[in-house]
C-alpha cells in the first residue's frame, strides 16, 4: 500500500480539481473574483481532504502495526500472562535484558558453586594419591594402611555424591541458556515492528512528495532525499558491531586492535 499510488488512484479528486480549475479560469475571464476566490478555497479544501485521508490511512496503518505487535514467544501460561501486559517495544527489550540477566546470573551461580566442589574432590584425590604412592613403595605402616583403607572408602562415597552435584550444576547451566530462544524471538518482533514503521514513514514521504507535486511546491522532498546520512563529527559510542567484517572503519577483532595500537606506538 504505497501512499503515492493511493494519491494517483484518486480520479475523483483529480476530476474535481480539473473541473474547479476550469471554473476558476472562466470566472477570472468573466471578472467574477468572488466566485474565483470561492473556487480557490474549494480547490484548497479538496487538496487538504485528500492529504488528511492519506495521513489518516497511514496513521491507522501505524496504529494497527503497533496493536498487532503481540508476542507468542512465551510458552508457559505464566509467561504469557506476563508478556500480554507488555505493550511496547521498549518494555519488550527490557524483558530481553531481564531474561539474559537471569540466565547469566544463574549460569554464574552454578559455576561459582561448582568450582569449590570440583576443587575439594581434586584436593582429596591428590592427598590419597600421595598416600597410595607410599603404599606402592611399601613405605606404609600397617596402622597407616588401616587409616588409608578407611579414607578411600569415604573418598569413593564423596566422589559419587559430588560428581552428582557437579552434573546437576552442568544441567542447570545448560537449561539457563533458554533465554536465547525467547529473547531472539522477541527481538525479531521488535525488528519487524521497526521495519513496518519505517515502511509507513517511507509511504508518508511519498504522499508528501505527491502533495508537493500537485501543489507546485518542489524541493523539500528532494532536499530530504539528497541529505547525506547525518555525518557525525564526534566520536559516539555505538555498541557491538553487527557486521564488523563489512566495514572498514571498524576493527574485526582483538588482533586488529593490537595492530592499530602498536602502530600508535603501544
Amino acid at each position: 500500500m504505497s501512499g503515492a499510488d493511493n494519491f494517483e488512484g484518486q480520479p475523483e479528486l483529480l476530476d474535481e480539481l480539473k473541473e474547479r480549475a476550469r471554473g476558476l479560469v472562466s470566472s477570472l475571464e468573466l471578472g467574477d473574483f468572488s466566485n474565483a476566490a470561492e473556487l480557490i478555497r474549494q480547490i484548497n479544501e479538496a487538496r487538504d481532504r485528500s492529504i488528511y485521508r492519506e495521513v489518516g490511512k497511514l496513521t491507522r496503518g501505524l496504529h494497527e502495526a503497533i496493536v498487532n505487535f503481540q508476542i507468542d514467544a512465551a510458552q508457559s501460561s505464566a509467561d504469557q500472562e506476563k508478556m500480554s501486559k507488555i505493550a511496547n517495544a521498549q518494555e519488550r527489550l527490557d524483558y530481553v535484558i531481564g531474561l539474559t540477566q537471569r540466565s547469566a546470573d544463574k549460569t554464574m551461580d552454578m559455576v561459582e558453586e561448582g568450582i569449590p566442589v570440583a576443587e575439594q574432590l581434586g584436593t582429596s584425590a591428590k592427598s590419597l594419591h600421595e598416600e597410595w604412592q607410599r603404599l606402592i613403595r611399601r613405605e606404609m605402616k600397617p596402622e597407616e594402611f588401616r587409616d588409608l583403607y578407611h579414607r578411600i572408602d569415604v573418598f569413593l562415597g564423596e566422589t559419587v555424591e559430588r560428581s552428582g552435584v557437579i552434573s546437576e550444576k552442568f544441567n542447570s547451566i545448560l537449561l539457563a541458556q533458554d533465554f536465547q530462544d525467547l529473547s531472539g524471538q522477541v527481538i525479531k518482533k521488535v525488528i519487524s515492528l521497526v521495519q513496518e514503521v519505517e515502511d509507513r514513514l517511507v509511504d508518508l514521504m511519498r504522499v508528501a512528495g505527491q502533495v508537493e507535486q500537485i501543489t507546485g511546491i518542489f524541493g523539500a522532498a528532494d532536499v530530504i532525499a539528497a541529505a547525506p546520512a547525518a555525518a557525525v563529527a564526534d566520536v559516539v559510542a555505538e555498541g557491538p558491531q553487527i557486521k564488523a567484517g563489512e566495514r572498514t572503519d571498524v576493527v574485526s577483532g582483538q588482533d586488529d586492535v593490537d595492530e592499530l595500537l602498536s602502530s600508535l606506538g603501544f
Binding site: 566520536v235 559510542a237 555505538e238 555498541g239 557491538p240 558491531q241 564488523a244 572503519d249 571498524v250 576493527v251 574485526s252 577483532g253 582483538q254 586492535v257 592499530l260 595500537l261 600508535l264 603501544f266
Partner: peptide, 28 residues
Amino acid sequence: AEAKRDQIIEAAQAGVNGYVVKPFTAAV
C-alpha cells in the same frame, strides 16, 4: 564492544594502557 578505529585511536590518545574488544576470552 566499541570497535571503531577512531574510537581506539581516541582512547589511545587519551592515555589508555590497553584495549580489549568484547566479546573477549580469558586468555586475551
